[in-house]
Amino acid sequence: MNPIRYERRRYTTGQSPIEKLERLSSHLGGPAIFIKRDDQLGLTVGGNKTRKLEYLVADALRQGADTLITCGAVQSNHCRLTLAAAVREGLKCQLVLTEPADGYHPQASGNHLLFHLLGAEKIEVIPADGDMQLVMEKLAQELASKGRKAYLIPVGGSNELGSLGYMACAEEIEQQAWETGTAYDYVVTATGSGGTQAGLLAGFMARQSNTKVIGVNVSRDRAAQESKVLDLLRSTAGMVGLQGEIRAESVVCEDRYVGPGYAVPTAEMVEAVKLVAQTEGILLDPVYTGKAMAGLIGLIREGRFAKDDHILFLHTGGSPALYTVPQLFIPES
C-alpha cells in the first residue's frame, strides 16, 4: 500500500454538499444540473484549494517547515487559502503576487484585503511576466539564512501531491452518488493550473467510474491546457501506483469561454453569474466559476448533453473576487 494518499490534514468536517439546481435546470431546459459546494470547504471563505492543501500542508509539517511560501495573482484564491492554512497550523506565510494589467493597488479589496487581515508575513509583488518560482526560492533562501525552513507550494497547489485532494473528491462524489442513487454522467469544472481536473480524472479512474470530466479553461488554449492536465494526470497516477492505460482523449478542456485572457471579464461570464444568483441564490466568481458555468450553459444550449443526463458542476469557490468588480453587476442609473 502506498501510504501517501492517507497522509493529510483535515480542514473540513464531513463532505461538501451536493444540491440539485432545479430552477436553473428548468430555465435552461436541458439535463438535470447539480452543484458540488466546494465553496463551502473549510478554511477562510472556502474553495477547491482547501482539498489540495490538506496534503501539501501535511507534507510541509512532516518536513519540519515553519513557513509556507506560495504564489499567484493579486486576487488569488489559492494564496488566501494557503495563508489560512498557515494560520490554522501556527505557521508563517509569504506570498509572491503578480502585478495585474491595471497596476498594483495596495488598498485593493477582495482576496488582497484578506491577505492583510489574515496576517501574511510578507507580500512580494512582481511584474506579470516575472519568474514566481525564482522569487519564491529567493525568499526561502533568505529564511534559511535566518535558521528558518520554508516549504514552497506551486501556483494553484497543482502538483502530484496537491492533485490527491481531488482524487479524494472523486471518491467522495462516488460515495454521495451511491448514497442518493444519482449517478453523474459528467463533472464540469474550471481548469487553470490543472490539479483539480487531473485529480478528478485520477480519482474516477481509481474507482473505475464512468463519470466523464469536462474542464472549462480560464486561461490557455485547448491544446496547451489538455497537455498540461494530461502530464499532471500521468505523474499523479504514477505516484500513487494507479494501474491502467491513461488515454489522451480522457482529458477534455473547453477553451471557447476564456475570452481575452485570464481574469478578463466576458459577457457570457456576467450572464452566468447573474443567472445562477437569480435562480438559485448561489454566488459564483468572475474568474473561475463564472467562466466555467458560462461554458456549461453554452454546452447545454448547443445540445452537448442528453436531456436525461446528470451534470455535476463543481463550485471551486472564489466569491471574494466579486467585490473587486461591482461595475460588472450593478446597472448604471
Score class of each variant (00 low, 15 high):
I311R: 01
V270P: 00
A183M: 11
Y323E: 01
I4N: 06
S109T: 13
L242D: 09
Y262H: 07
F115D: 15
L283C: 11
H116A: 13
R9C: 14
E174S: 03
K228S: 13
A202G: 06
G244I: 10
Y55E: 02
E172C: 04
G165P: 04
A202D: 12
C71H: 05
A306P: 03
T289V: 04
G156V: 03
E332M: 10
L24N: 03
W178D: 14
E22H: 10
Y11W: 03
T67N: 06
L312T: 05
S227N: 14
T191R: 00
E142P: 01
A277D: 10
E124A: 05
L328N: 03
F115K: 01
L21E: 11
V229A: 13
V45Y: 14
I173M: 07
G42D: 03
V216T: 02
L113F: 15
E22K: 14
K20E: 15
A73N: 05
F305V: 06
K36V: 07
L21H: 10
I35C: 10
P286G: 00
G72S: 03
Q141A: 15
V229D: 09
L200D: 01
T70P: 00
G14I: 02
S145Y: 12
I246A: 10
R62C: 04
Q208T: 08
T50N: 05
S219P: 00
P320V: 09
R23P: 01
Y288P: 07
G119F: 02
M293G: 02
L201M: 07
A170F: 00
L230M: 08
H310S: 13
L83I: 01
G72R: 02
L284S: 05
P265K: 08
R23V: 08
G64R: 07
A177Y: 10
R207G: 08
F329G: 09
L68V: 04
T324D: 07
E172P: 04
S145G: 15
L139E: 11
L143Y: 00
G241P: 09
A140C: 00
L53P: 02
I123W: 06
L91I: 01
Q94R: 15
E99Y: 07
L91A: 11
C79T: 10
V216R: 02
L164F: 09
V258P: 01
D309C: 07
L314R: 00
E268D: 12
L314E: 14
Q197S: 08
T50H: 08
Y104S: 02
Q197C: 04
P320H: 06
G298A: 08
L53T: 01
L328K: 09
S109Y: 14
P100V: 00
P260D: 00
V287T: 08
C79L: 13
T180R: 11
G47F: 11
A128I: 03
Q225C: 10
R9Q: 15
K92I: 01
L61H: 01
V125E: 01
A248I: 03
F329T: 03
V125I: 11
